[in-house]
Design a protein around this nucleic acid. Structure first.
Length: 110
DNA sequence: ACGATGACTCTTC
DNA sequence: GGAAGAGCCATCG
């Protein structure tokens, strides 16, 4: 699987994240069968601008529920997540454990 | 081809 | 829970 295909896969998972929920890079990587490629997932999300369809990249955060990346961009994601009903404090998701969405088990095959 | 880098994660302290 | 070291792999100069 080459980069673009991998990207599309990541976007596919990210799109299926329910509203008001978030997932982590590692979780997505796990679903794709490459749990050690967390960085590539991050790269895919960072390159979501190349996605054919809009991707809720704001629902993808680090394993600790911390919004990584540019502070300006991160703050935007924080607001978007807050709009979805999440509690966030200084780029850090509060009840991350509760709002965390595990694509491995909760994935909804439409 | 090589070394440095990165929106990461894991284990250990 | 936060900091430090190691691992992983694609991208870039």
């Amino acid at each position: 699987m080459k980069d673009e295909h991998f990207f599309e896969h990541v976007w596919e998972i990210a799109r299926q994240v329910p509203k008001g929920r978030v997932t982590s890079y590692g979780a997505i990587a796990k679903v794709l069968g490459v749990g050690n490629l967390s960085r590539m997932v991050a790269r895919a999300i960072g390159s979501c601008g190349n996605a054919p369809t809009p991707v809720p990249y704001h629902r993808v955060v680090s394993s600790s529920g911390h919004l990584s990346g540019d502070p300006s961009s991160a703050r935007k994601r924080q607001q978007m997540l807050e709009e979805e009903g999440l509690e966030i404090s200084n780029l850090k998701i509060k009840n991350f454990r509760t709002v965390f969405w595990n694509p491995v088990t909760d994935l909804n095959y439409d």
